[in-house]
């Protein structure tokens, strides 16, 4: 269970509060106007943004003392998810061992993860030689290898075309379902939320609203969401 305990995030001219819990498993979308703090919330969970006050807990454990890499979290950013100078296999290997000294067994796991996301045989390539969709798959495969209970998606598929994006979202849903991973995904697009997220968090006007059933939320959007959606 992910708990925001009287959490407040603050930056110059910006403040965001959150105080609720999120039950484990399932996919939750985070939606709201630009600049509301959706990405900042993910940054705080991942350990890049220290809270002004309050705590973030996972299974009752305060995350504050943990370095980003030690948190029970994998995160995919909008871009720069892969090191361009490392091969795809090495990029994936970092998900298993940060020093990249992989055992034979670990190498096999890397190959299996590549197979799982449909990148079989591309392990020796550098990211620059792959298409955008393939790069996204590789990043997702690394999250799969890391096997952290929480997966944060900060719009990693925003640059992909609609069909490719849908494909990736489905792959996320599949993998999350198989592994029981809790997924939090930031999105601009209500369609993304409707496609795979069971529940949705609305971030607006300095507040993070507790999750609601996605279908219910969009059926009767509150004022802040309505104005964002333009309905």
């Amino acid at each position: 269970m992910l708990t925001f305990e009287q959490l407040a995030l603050a930056q110059e001219g910006f403040r965001l509060e959150a105080d609720f819990s999120l039950s484990p498993g399932g996919i939750t979308a985070i939606i709201g106007p630009s600049g509301a703090g959706k990405s900042t919330l993910l940054s705080a969970i991942a350990g890049f943004f220290p809270p002004a006050s309050g705590r973030i807990l996972w299974e009752g454990q305060d995350l504050a003392p943990l370095a980003p890499g030690a948190r029970p979290v994998s995160i995919l950013f909008q871009d720069q998810n892969l090191f361009p100078h490392l091969t795809i296999a090495d990029n994936l290997g970092l998900g298993l061992r940060a020093d990249l000294r992989l055992s034979g067994g670990e190498r096999t796991k890397v190959a299996q993860a590549l197979d799982r996301v449909g990148l079989s045989g591309l392990g020796d390539r550098k990211p620059g030689t792959l298409s955008g969709g393939q790069q996204s798959r590789a990043a997702l495969a690394r999250a799969l290898l890391r096997a952290r209970p929480l997966l944060l998606l900060d719009e990693p598929f925003a640059a992909l075309g609609p069909a490719l994006k849908a494909e990736m979202l489905d792959l996320v849903a599949e993998i999350a379902g198989e592994t029981g991973t809790t997924v939090l995904m930031v999105s601009h697009d209500p369609a993304d939320a409707r496609r795979i997220a069971g529940q949705t968090i609305l971030v607006a006007e300095g507040r993070t609203n507790p999750p609601e059933d996605t279908a219910t939320l969009f059926a009767a959007p509150p004022a802040a969401l309505a104005s964002y959606l333009g309905t």
Partner: peptide
Amino acid sequence: TDYDRLSASLGVTGLDWIRLVALPR
């Protein structure tokens, strides 16, 4: 600016970071 978050999120820090990220990049 470009890769600190990725490195941190993967726990690639310290000497590993020097060897795997800084020196080659």
